[in-house]
Design a protein around this nucleic acid. Structure first.
Lengths: 337, 337
DNA sequence: TGCAAAAATGAGAGCGGTCACATCGTGTTG
DNA sequence: CAACACGATGTGACCGCTCTCATTTTTGCA
């Protein structure tokens, strides 16, 4: 027996059963003014009974409104992006929007192009880019997207569209904290080359050092992982010509601490370490990590708010950077020497 | 001056400029057999030049194929779900599918219902549920969804649709490890009440204890967070009538270790601790955490593979549970007594 | 009670594609 | 060279909905 291919009930099925025209059903659906409430109730009842569900594709086709926000990401498994993404979804849901996410397999401009095309062909109404890498940024520029757009970067280079925690001032906070404790030889373990955030944190670090007239050594660029921090830490512990490290995120800081301890060094006794992000675990690291907290969820929420504002024609709103906060815990102390 | 509302170019615009019928454009787009390659090239050139992009809504409407997979989640900011989700996206992308995610604000059946309706109205072709909670599970049952469906749970209670790491055997692995080290008084810090995974891990723990004929004490149910682990750990360290704890995830294990250290207890000297998940950081905790590794990314990939298989009419494939692996590190040792 | 105005409802067109089928031109065959 | 098959292309209908506008019903008031 071939299973009969049943189409989902359409607006006309509902209309027929309710004894009205399909137009009236449409009105009931879009709670229009011009419908008698008794009629509306009858229609809604039939809808319920039939399990009718309006076809969004048809709706999107005629209204050219998809009620969908596109999100372009990379590294979504990391705490920060994942948290922002979750917040975006929540906020979008509450506003009656759906979120379509797509992640970048590579960061060559072809891949970026391809993904954007894909999102665009879904007729998304707005785009959030959580993947703050230069190349992504540039690819978007090139594509000349005529769409409400928010990028979660931190440079402020495109004030119209970007939104972020002020990474630079966060980095300065961290660095200043170390300087104020008395550290003079401070290293920086940065994030990957292409990442805007990583660059901003590095800039903040350098600015602060220069302002305090301290020696500047070339930062080491990592990949955000604890493993990398560990590897670098093993290397660094052979030299020990520094008393503090500012790591560009908590994970790398964790790896550093691990490596230093393996080498018989005490944190913060011998070396102070500051992280960045304040992931929920950071308070439970050993020692509890001094770090810079940024509110990923707030960023996510605001990005949706900005997008919706732009969709409704209000603009220039919510662009104030969100200020990060220094959380002092046990991984920093005055230097021994 | 009113801005002229420009519609995106349609297939007919392309046809007109290329001097062919719209049908021929459609053929070029869907690389049909019956088209002369010279014609096709010409059409594709016009498409390029015009920046034409097929309207997915229109396509979905007529084909009733949206090329979209829906994902229902909760707790996406956590490492496990986030990793699975990222893998799902990657796999979907590679198969030419898009992913629409929606997260649960609450777990009452009304909220679940609402979210599912939303996804369904997007004409998703398949559904992955990453939120392995009983209520979600039941709500889906009730809705009687006629859709390829994969739930990332672990009970095997619905062999057709579920897919998972075998949580129970993972928990047994962890527990057995402690028993073999000589521990006799072992506690379990479990996950939240409603979570299927949490239950499976608890079951594995209990089974193993019973089999070894050891005392069973009621597990403590937590919320997956390190903070909770810490709070419980402070409480527990007052009693010390146990020599080992099996925590249902790494985060809670981290909190426990923190609390025990605060109380002057040594891990693993005084108390052994095993976690679950093997998050990337676990190797860098202090002490490095003995834990059970599960491959979240693999789960994500397989779920998509299952979905696609079902979409193509192949069934009963990929259901073999994925076996977790015990990773022994520094947080476990034989008991002192 | 009658009639205009307002409210409720219905009919037709069209959104941008794909499908089924008709048509056209060309190459093969007897 | 006529008859035919086959590949390439064009035409009409339709997917399920919303929009505009025409039509019917109800309401308010003289």
């Amino acid at each position: 027996m071939e299973p009969v291919k049943v189409r989902a009930p359409s607006i006309r099925d509902v209309a027929r059963i309710a004894g009205v025209s399909y137009q009236t059903v449409s009105r009931a659906l879009n709670n229009s003014e011009n419908i008698r409430s008794s009629t509306k109730d009858r229609v809604l009842e039939v809808i319920e009974q039939l399990g009718y569900r309006p076809n969004q594709a048809a709706r999107a086709l005629v209204t050219s409104r998809s009620r969908t926000i596109g999100v372009l990401t990379s590294q979504v498994a990391n705490y920060g992006p994942a948290t922002s993404l979750a917040a975006i979804e929540d906020a979008a849901r509450d506003a009656g929007y759906l979120v379509t996410t797509t992640s970048l397999a590579a960061t060559d401009s072809e891949a970026i192009h391809d993904r954007l095309e894909y999102l665009l062909s879904q007729a998304i109404e707005g785009l959030v880019v959580i993947s703050p890498q230069m190349r992504v940024f540039n690819a978007i520029r090139d594509l000349d997207i005529r769409l409400p757009l928010v990028t979660l970067d931190s440079t402020g280079r495109d004030g119209q569209h970007s939104l972020s925690v002020d990474q630079t001032s966060g980095a300065r906070l961290a660095t200043r904290h170390l300087i104020e404790l008395g550290h003079r030889k401070i290293l920086h373990l940065g994030g990957p080359q292409d990442w805007i955030e990583a660059e901003a944190r590095m800039t903040g670090f350098l600015d602060e050092l220069i302002e305090a007239d301290l020696d500047v050594r070339a930062p080491i660029l990592g990949d955000w992982t604890a493993d990398f921090g560990y590897t670098v830490g093993r290397e660094l512990s052979r030299y020990r010509d520094f008393s503090a490290v500012f790591a560009a995120n908590d994970q790398m800081a964790l790896g550093l601490i691990h490596a230093f301890r393996d080498a018989g060094l005490d944190v913060p006794g011998d070396i102070s370490i500051v992280g960045f992000d304040d992931v929920p675990d950071a308070a439970h690291y050993w020692p509890p990590l001094t770090t810079v907290r940024q509110d990923f969820a707030e960023i996510g929420r605001r990005s949706v708010a900005m997008l919706l504002a732009e969709l409704n024609g209000q603009s220039g709103f919510g662009h104030e950077p969100i200020l990060p906060e220094l959380i002092v815990r046990g991984s920093t102390a005055p230097p021994r020497w």
